[in-house]
Amino acid sequence: MLLHTVNKSPFERNALETCLQHAKKGSSILLIEDGVYGAVKGTLHAQRLAEASKNVKIYALAPDVDTRGLNGRLVDGVTLVDYGGFVDLVTEHNAVQAWL
């Protein structure tokens, strides 16, 4: 199982799109820093995340969501994790792929 991390806004870079193309069934995606913008409801990126969530687990780092004022604005199916949850995800997966 692979954990993919995305820290760039999909409105500035294509890291999320590339990640979604490479994420295999059973892997997980963690949105951190500006990557959390990819999960905002009503965007093309959110639609793609919703589709991807059928095969992969989608997470977002709660402090980054809070800092950007996005509470309650994320697409359904995104699980919020704190820093401890981030560490748990890293240890639960065989490897981490950072998409920059």
Rank of each mutant, 00 (worst) to 15 (best):
K24A: 15
N14G: 04
A50R: 10
A46Y: 03
G77K: 07
A39Q: 03
A98Q: 10
V6F: 03
I58M: 13
S28M: 04
V96P: 00
G72Y: 02
L100K: 12
E12A: 15
I58G: 09
H45C: 09
G77D: 09
Y59F: 15
S53W: 00
A52K: 01
F86S: 00
G38R: 09
K54Y: 05
L89G: 06
L89K: 07
G69D: 14
A95M: 13
L74F: 08
T5V: 09
G85A: 10
L70Y: 02
A23S: 13
G42I: 01
G77S: 03
L100T: 12
D76P: 09
I58K: 13
T67P: 00
L16V: 06
R73C: 07
D76T: 12
L20P: 06
Y37P: 05
R68D: 06
L80K: 09
R13M: 08
D88Q: 13
N55C: 05
V96L: 06
K57N: 15
G38E: 04
N71V: 10
V40K: 11
C19A: 14
L31F: 07
I58E: 11
L30I: 07
E17S: 14
C19L: 06
V81Y: 11
L74Y: 03
S28P: 01
D76F: 02
H4D: 02
L30F: 02
D76C: 05
A39C: 03
T91C: 07
I29H: 09
V6D: 08
S53A: 10
L20C: 00
M1E: 09
E51Q: 14
V78A: 03
L80D: 03
G38V: 05
R48M: 01
